[in-house]
Design a protein around this nucleic acid. Structure first.
Length: 647
RNA sequence: GCCCCCGUAGCUCAGCUGGAUAGAGCAGCGGAUUUCUAAUCCGCUGGUCGCAGGUUCGAGUCCUGCCGGGGGCGCCA
């Protein structure tokens, strides 16, 4: 029996013993938990539910419950009770159990050793099939800080769901067409002079991004010239100029600006050329398509490098260039069933009033489709391709309304799977006011590659300063592991709906509640094992699957309070995985690892492993340390963080 | 104006779906260790959980209103 099933069995037995007059199958399920302080025992059963049924004071009921449990589980230990109960005691409205430390240690350690890399997981494929869509980059510029958070949430959420037994499909939906893509294409067509990422030695996405920025600059210049000709002062539209305005004056100024922008868009030679290019693309113009293909390949090769570096993986890539015409047939269907309605000007609207939402355009008056129409089509396509039970969209919180509209439409169109769609929203990543040295090529956003480089460099400096490096290569590899560990833990430990203010120079530190602290614990355990082998206290032939072999370890010797705290934490890993997956959040995984390694640090500081008072105790502690390392690897794996052998 | 999210220690954040005396890290102060890697450990200081009501035996957690911050209210994506 595993600890988890032991606890479930125990919960059942305790419920049966509760002093209420209820048939056994009508008794409420017990939610066992850990008492707030260890002096109060190892496991707590709340008496509230039973007290409510019995219409009694919970503390009194707990007192009576205590007596019955004492008679049945303490004095007469049934054979299924793998962890012996030493004592049971009512603390107010709680019934708390005190375990025999030795048998608890044996059960928990046995679980970790037996299950190893799968400890804490639910059997793969036993749950529903879930698709997770994340990343969703545009092919006109490199990935930035926002994409980093998106990828980290997407990757780790996928891993978490897989660990909880679900079949997970990871997909990317690449926005590779549209007016914004044509902008970088046009700039390259006019000013590229045939240069390539190979000829300039640039990463493909940065190469293309440079032309996107160039286009932006050219338009700005054109706009300034145009404004001058028209006798319009652009300065009046600046933030500073608007600061002095209030109410109607401000509104009037903003209307003026809008009108001028619209006028310029029409008159602009560059904008005209871009619109023309988009028309040519849609008409299948060969030269334009060839240029588009070439530039997309450059960008995508750059993305692949960044994904590879971060550990981002996808089972399938959807491209909007293939899906952008989808959805129109759904509109036809919706018109028939009255979900959609055609207005006099020819535009088609989704009637969302019944869902408490405002009506939404799905076809423009010229018959072309909008973003949500495509998304409708893509949703259907995904279900046709994979037939999943749930579909999770990892997309920023600014698109909350969009997904409410989308899911409402899918429901009104009566797709049976519509209820399984979920928007995994997350808050913005903002930069502090001054913005440090991590200015991006665009000047406003932090570039993902720059960010990874900066963290790598910070970690490398620390390694060199501490003299931890054995070779330059090893130092670089460790620096990469640590830099990413710091970033990933920092981003993932906060709940997704919070905005993050990200100061690359100050907020990522390597001490305290950080990724490197968790990694350090792992590295030190490996260090203990290495030292043990060196000193002959542990021999290679004693190791099986990374643990000391069966029969060499008497776990029941692990009775120190600090050891017990670690063991209980290890025991909770599986429950934590399950509830986190149910709640679709990885933050508890990150926080669990920080807690576990803190408890472990306290333990090994207090109780020496290799110099323990007896060889038996020494081996038991080695096994416990190895178990901690295993769970740290399992948890970090979910977060896509590497666990280094040394650092 | 309407809708959504956030507000917990000086700072950055946890808080197990409503339970026991609200916890970490950083910063500050004071200690430990001739190390199993000091990227460590221990102690102290620090809280009207934005404010006001309400529901409940019990509220940081649920409801209502207000205040402050962010986002959204396109025939953009």
């Amino acid at each position: 029996m595993s600890y988890l099933s032991f606890e479930a069995r125990l919960a059942e037995a305790l419920a049966q013993l509760a002093p209420v007059e209820l048939p056994v199958d009508e008794r409420p399920a017990l939610a066992l938990g850990r008492p707030p302080r260890k002096e109060m025992g190892d496991l707590a059963a709340p008496a509230f539910e039973f007290a409510k049924r019995a219409k009694r004071n919970p503390a009194e009921l707990a007192k009576e419950w205590e007596a019955r449990v004492r008679a049945a589980l303490v004095h007469e230990t049934p054979e299924w009770l793998e962890v012996t109960i030493r004592d049971v005691k009512a603390f107010g409205p709680y019934l708390n159990l005190f375990f025999d430390p030795g048998s608890l240690a044996a059960l928990v350690l046995g679980d970790v050793v037996a299950e190893g890399a799968t400890y804490g997981q639910v059997a793969p494929g036993s749950g529903p099939k879930i698709m997770v869509e994340y990343s969703a980059p545009n092919t006109n510029k490199p990935l930035h800080l926002g994409h980093v958070r998106n990828n980290l949430i997407g990757m780790s959420l996928s891993n978490l769901l897989a660990a909880a037994g679900n079949e997970v499909i990871r997909v990317n939906l690449v926005n590779d067409r549209g007016i914004h893509i044509c902008k970088s294409m046009l700039a390259y067509q006019r000013f590229g002079n045939g240069e390539t990422p190979e000829s300039t030695g640039e990463k493909g996405d940065h190469f293309v991004g440079r032309y996107y920025i160039l286009f932006d600059q050219l338009v700005k210049e054109e706009k300034a010239t145009y404004a001058q000709k028209q006798g319009v002062d652009l300065a009046q539209f600046s933030k500073d100029a608007k600061k002095g305005l209030e109410g109607d004056a401000l509104k009037a100024r903003e209307r003026e600006e809008e009108a001028f922008d619209a006028q310029f868009e029409e008159a602009s030679e560059l904008m005209g050329a871009v619109r023309e290019m988009l028309r040519a693309w849609e008409a299948g113009d060969e030269a334009v398509l060839a240029l588009w293909k070439q530039m997309n390949e450059w960008v995508l090769s750059g993305f692949r490098q960044t994904y590879e570096r971060m550990g981002s993986k996808f089972d399938y890539w959807y491209f909007e260039s293939n899906t952008w015409t989808l959805g129109k047939d759904l509109v036809e269907k919706g018109l028939e069933t009255g979900v959609f309605e055609r207005h006099d000007d020819g535009s088609v609207w989704a009637k969302l009033e019944s869902k408490g939402l405002a009506d939404k355009v799905v076809l423009r008056s010229d018959g072309t489709s909008v973003y949500i129409t495509q998304d409708l089509g893509t949703a259907v396509l995904k279900h046709r391709d994979y037939g999943m039970d749930r579909s999770i969209y990892v997309v920023g919180s600014e698109q909350q309304q969009h997904f409410k509209n989308l899911f409402a439409m899918l429901e009104l169109l009566e797709f049976p799977w519509a209820g399984g769609c979920y928007h995994a929203s997350y808050g913005m990543v903002t930069l502090p006011h001054g913005m440090g040295r991590l200015k991006s090529r665009e000047g406003t956003k932090v570039d993902a590659d720059d960010l990874l480089d900066t963290l790598h460099d910070l970690a490398l400096a620390k390694i060199e300063e501490g003299g931890y490096a054995e070779s330059t290569d090893a130092a670089r590899e460790t620096a990469e592991t640590i830099g990413q560990g710091a970033l990933k833990m920092y981003v993932l430990q906060v709940s997704p709906d919070k905005n993050i203010q990200f100061d690359p120079n100050e907020t990522i530190s390597f001490t305290g509640d950080t990724g490197p602290a968790v990694q350090y614990s792992h590295a030190r355990i490996q260090g203990i094992l290495r030292k043990g082998l060196e000193q002959g206290k542990v021999t290679a032939d004693q190791l099986e699957g990374g643990f000391l072999g069966h029969g060499l370890v008497d776990a029941s010797l692990l009775v120190e309070a600090e050891e017990q705290e670690v063991l209980k934490k290890l025991a909770d890993f599986g429950t934590m995985i399950r509830t986190s997956a149910e709640n679709l959040t990885v933050a508890p995984v990150a926080n669990y690892l920080l807690d576990l390694t803190k408890l472990y640090a306290r333990m090994y500081h207090e109780h020496e492993v290799l110099t323990a008072s007896s060889p038996e105790l020494m081996r038991a502690r080695v096994q416990l340390a190895l178990a901690v390392a295993q769970v740290v690897r399992n948890g970090l794996g979910i977060l896509t963080i590497d666990a280094p052998e040394r650092m």
